[in-house]
Amino acid sequence: MDTKKLTRMSMLLSISIVLGIIESFLPLFDGSIPGLKIGLANIVIIFTLYTYGLKEAILISIIRVFVIGLLRTGLFNYPFFFSLSGAFVSVVVMYLLKKIKIFSIVGISVCGALSHNLAQIFTSYFLLKVNSVFIYLPYLLIFSIPTGIIVGIVSKSLLKYYDFN
Protein backbone atom coordinates (compact mmCIF):
# COMPACT_ATOMS: atom_id res chain seq x y z
CA MET A 1 0.00 0.00 0.00
CA ASP A 2 1.48 3.33 -0.92
CA THR A 3 1.87 6.18 1.51
CA LYS A 4 -0.92 8.24 -0.01
CA LYS A 5 -3.43 5.42 0.41
CA LEU A 6 -2.21 4.65 3.91
CA THR A 7 -2.59 8.26 4.94
CA ARG A 8 -6.01 8.59 3.40
CA MET A 9 -7.22 5.35 4.97
CA SER A 10 -5.91 6.43 8.35
CA MET A 11 -7.89 9.66 8.01
CA LEU A 12 -11.00 7.76 7.04
CA LEU A 13 -10.49 5.42 9.99
CA SER A 14 -10.10 8.35 12.36
CA ILE A 15 -13.22 10.02 11.02
CA SER A 16 -15.25 6.85 11.44
CA ILE A 17 -13.95 6.47 15.00
CA VAL A 18 -14.81 10.04 15.91
CA LEU A 19 -18.26 9.70 14.37
CA GLY A 20 -18.78 6.48 16.29
CA ILE A 21 -17.77 8.10 19.56
CA ILE A 22 -19.99 11.11 19.04
CA GLU A 23 -22.90 8.79 18.33
CA SER A 24 -22.26 6.83 21.50
CA PHE A 25 -22.92 9.97 23.46
CA LEU A 26 -26.26 10.57 21.71
CA PRO A 27 -28.42 7.55 22.36
CA LEU A 28 -31.74 7.64 20.56
CA PHE A 29 -34.92 7.20 22.59
CA ASP A 30 -33.00 7.29 25.88
CA GLY A 31 -31.37 3.96 25.18
CA SER A 32 -34.62 2.05 25.45
CA ILE A 33 -33.86 0.31 22.17
CA PRO A 34 -30.28 -0.95 22.47
CA GLY A 35 -28.22 -0.75 19.33
CA LEU A 36 -30.31 2.00 17.79
CA LYS A 37 -28.11 4.64 16.22
CA ILE A 38 -27.95 6.81 13.17
CA GLY A 39 -24.89 5.00 11.91
CA LEU A 40 -22.87 8.01 10.87
CA ALA A 41 -19.72 5.92 10.87
CA ASN A 42 -21.23 3.99 8.00
CA ILE A 43 -20.85 7.03 5.79
CA VAL A 44 -17.11 6.43 5.98
CA ILE A 45 -17.52 2.71 5.41
CA ILE A 46 -19.62 3.19 2.31
CA PHE A 47 -17.23 5.83 1.05
CA THR A 48 -14.31 3.43 1.53
CA LEU A 49 -16.22 0.63 -0.15
CA TYR A 50 -16.89 2.68 -3.25
CA THR A 51 -13.50 4.36 -3.37
CA TYR A 52 -11.21 1.46 -2.54
CA GLY A 53 -13.04 -1.82 -2.18
CA LEU A 54 -14.09 -4.64 0.12
CA LYS A 55 -10.78 -5.36 1.83
CA GLU A 56 -10.21 -1.78 2.79
CA ALA A 57 -13.78 -1.32 4.02
CA ILE A 58 -13.58 -4.46 6.19
CA LEU A 59 -10.25 -3.31 7.60
CA ILE A 60 -11.54 0.09 8.59
CA SER A 61 -14.74 -1.39 10.03
CA ILE A 62 -12.98 -3.90 12.21
CA ILE A 63 -10.30 -1.57 13.47
CA ARG A 64 -12.97 0.98 14.23
CA VAL A 65 -14.85 -1.53 16.40
CA PHE A 66 -11.68 -2.38 18.28
CA VAL A 67 -10.75 1.22 18.94
CA ILE A 68 -14.25 2.15 20.03
CA GLY A 69 -14.16 -0.96 22.18
CA LEU A 70 -10.98 0.31 23.81
CA LEU A 71 -12.43 3.75 24.33
CA ARG A 72 -16.10 3.24 25.04
CA THR A 73 -17.76 -0.14 25.15
CA GLY A 74 -15.04 -2.37 26.48
CA LEU A 75 -13.12 -5.11 24.65
CA PHE A 76 -14.29 -8.67 24.30
CA ASN A 77 -17.52 -8.17 26.14
CA TYR A 78 -21.05 -8.57 24.79
CA PRO A 79 -21.45 -5.10 23.21
CA PHE A 80 -18.08 -5.54 21.55
CA PHE A 81 -19.06 -8.79 19.86
CA PHE A 82 -22.41 -7.39 18.82
CA SER A 83 -20.72 -4.40 17.12
CA LEU A 84 -18.12 -6.60 15.52
CA SER A 85 -20.65 -8.94 13.98
CA GLY A 86 -22.88 -6.08 12.84
CA ALA A 87 -19.99 -4.21 11.24
CA PHE A 88 -18.57 -7.24 9.47
CA VAL A 89 -21.86 -8.54 8.13
CA SER A 90 -23.05 -5.16 6.89
CA VAL A 91 -19.84 -4.49 4.94
CA VAL A 92 -19.99 -7.88 3.23
CA VAL A 93 -23.69 -7.51 2.44
CA MET A 94 -23.18 -4.04 0.99
CA TYR A 95 -20.28 -5.26 -1.13
CA LEU A 96 -22.33 -8.12 -2.57
CA LEU A 97 -25.31 -5.88 -3.31
CA LYS A 98 -23.01 -3.34 -4.95
CA LYS A 99 -21.75 -6.08 -7.24
CA ILE A 100 -25.25 -7.21 -8.19
CA LYS A 101 -26.15 -3.63 -9.06
CA ILE A 102 -29.86 -3.70 -8.28
CA PHE A 103 -29.96 -0.90 -5.78
CA SER A 104 -28.60 2.60 -5.80
CA ILE A 105 -26.18 3.71 -3.15
CA VAL A 106 -29.09 4.76 -0.97
CA GLY A 107 -30.67 1.35 -1.19
CA ILE A 108 -27.36 -0.29 -0.40
CA SER A 109 -26.97 1.93 2.62
CA VAL A 110 -30.41 0.91 3.83
CA CYS A 111 -29.50 -2.74 3.38
CA GLY A 112 -26.25 -2.11 5.19
CA ALA A 113 -28.17 -0.69 8.15
CA LEU A 114 -30.66 -3.55 8.00
CA SER A 115 -28.04 -6.26 7.94
CA HIS A 116 -26.03 -4.54 10.67
CA ASN A 117 -29.02 -4.61 13.01
CA LEU A 118 -30.06 -8.13 12.06
CA ALA A 119 -26.56 -9.40 12.66
CA GLN A 120 -26.40 -7.68 16.03
CA ILE A 121 -29.70 -9.14 17.19
CA PHE A 122 -28.89 -12.65 16.10
CA THR A 123 -25.47 -12.44 17.73
CA SER A 124 -27.05 -11.27 20.96
CA TYR A 125 -29.51 -14.16 20.76
CA PHE A 126 -26.72 -16.69 20.38
CA LEU A 127 -24.60 -15.19 23.13
CA LEU A 128 -27.30 -14.41 25.67
CA LYS A 129 -29.75 -17.15 24.76
CA VAL A 130 -32.86 -15.16 25.59
CA ASN A 131 -35.85 -14.83 23.29
CA SER A 132 -36.62 -11.31 24.43
CA VAL A 133 -33.91 -9.77 22.21
CA PHE A 134 -36.18 -10.26 19.22
CA ILE A 135 -38.67 -7.74 20.58
CA TYR A 136 -36.42 -4.94 19.33
CA LEU A 137 -36.25 -6.28 15.80
CA PRO A 138 -39.23 -4.41 14.27
CA TYR A 139 -38.11 -1.08 15.72
CA LEU A 140 -34.51 -1.47 14.59
CA LEU A 141 -35.62 -2.53 11.13
CA ILE A 142 -37.99 0.34 10.65
CA PHE A 143 -35.32 2.80 11.70
CA SER A 144 -32.81 1.43 9.26
CA ILE A 145 -34.91 2.97 6.52
CA PRO A 146 -34.55 6.65 7.37
CA THR A 147 -31.05 6.27 8.82
CA GLY A 148 -29.97 4.26 5.78
CA ILE A 149 -31.39 6.89 3.44
CA ILE A 150 -29.64 9.75 5.23
CA VAL A 151 -26.30 7.94 5.36
CA GLY A 152 -26.73 6.99 1.70
CA ILE A 153 -27.46 10.52 0.54
CA VAL A 154 -24.46 11.91 2.46
CA SER A 155 -22.18 9.21 1.08
CA LYS A 156 -23.42 9.88 -2.43
CA SER A 157 -22.62 13.57 -2.12
CA LEU A 158 -19.20 12.89 -0.65
CA LEU A 159 -18.32 10.50 -3.44
CA LYS A 160 -19.24 13.15 -5.99
CA TYR A 161 -16.93 15.71 -4.43
CA TYR A 162 -14.02 13.53 -3.44
CA ASP A 163 -12.57 11.34 -6.11
CA PHE A 164 -9.44 9.72 -4.76
CA ASN A 165 -8.81 7.95 -8.02
Binding site: I102, F103, S104, I105, V106, G107, V110, C111, L114, P138, L141, I142, S144, I145, I149, G152, I153
Partner: peptide, 18 residues
Protein backbone atom coordinates in the same frame (compact mmCIF):
# COMPACT_ATOMS: atom_id res chain seq x y z
CA UNK B 1 -34.66 11.58 -7.40
CA UNK B 2 -32.77 10.19 -4.42
CA UNK B 3 -32.81 6.53 -5.31
CA UNK B 4 -33.96 4.08 -7.98
CA UNK B 5 -37.09 1.96 -8.37
CA UNK B 6 -35.63 -1.10 -6.67
CA UNK B 7 -34.75 0.88 -3.59
CA UNK B 8 -38.33 2.06 -3.27
CA UNK B 9 -39.65 -1.47 -3.63
CA UNK B 10 -37.20 -2.61 -0.94
CA UNK B 11 -38.36 0.05 1.45
CA UNK B 12 -42.01 -0.71 0.93
CA UNK B 13 -41.39 -4.40 1.56
CA UNK B 14 -39.50 -3.71 4.78
CA UNK B 15 -42.23 -1.40 5.94
CA UNK B 16 -44.93 -3.98 5.38
CA UNK B 17 -43.00 -6.76 7.11
CA UNK B 18 -42.26 -4.61 10.12
Amino acid sequence: VIMNKNDIKLIVVIFVIV
